[in-house]
């Protein structure tokens, strides 16, 4: 839905959702949150609704929604789910540049109040995986 034109070094993410579900929208906001924390402004997010483009699901091998694909830098990396429950592993998996966060002494969890609210919600609804 939103794709900001940036420099060639811009990180690119595509988020596949199916319909305007709560999970999808929280995934969008979570992704934005993470990107803001680690990439500053140097990222672009494209959101694709599979209900509108079902052929893309096959083309990009999407089964789970939401699925987030890091399309740049290569190689492609995929994360499914709301990106919320395992932030450290998501960050590590996506090879996000941690030096930026380190300079601002990155906390264990993102600090955004919105984000924390989500966490507490998720803790209630979805017991954390061990």
């Amino acid at each position: 839905m939103s794709a900001k034109k940036r420099s060639p070094k811009t990180w690119k993410f595509v988020l596949y959702i199916a319909g305007g579900m709560a999970k999808s929208s929280s995934a969008i906001s979570n992704l934005k949150q993470i990107c803001n924390s680690y990439l500053g402004n140097d990222y672009a997010i494209e959101v694709i609704d599979l209900l509108e483009h079902p052929e893309l699901a096959r083309q990009h091998q999407i089964l789970a929604v939401p699925t987030m694909i890091r399309t740049y830098p290569l190689p492609e990396k995929r994360v499914i789910g709301d990106l919320l429950s395992r932030p450290e592993s998501v960050v590590a998996f996506l090879d996000l540049p941690t030096h930026q966060a380190q300079t601002t002494s990155r906390p264990k969890r993102p600090v955004s109040t919105e984000y924390n609210k989500e966490i507490s919600e998720s803790k209630q609804g979805y017991p954390k995986k061990t």
Partner: peptide, 12 residues
Amino acid sequence: EFIETERYNLDG
């Protein structure tokens, strides 16, 4: 090929 976080479904 991917990592999982919570709260997903397989509507795809």
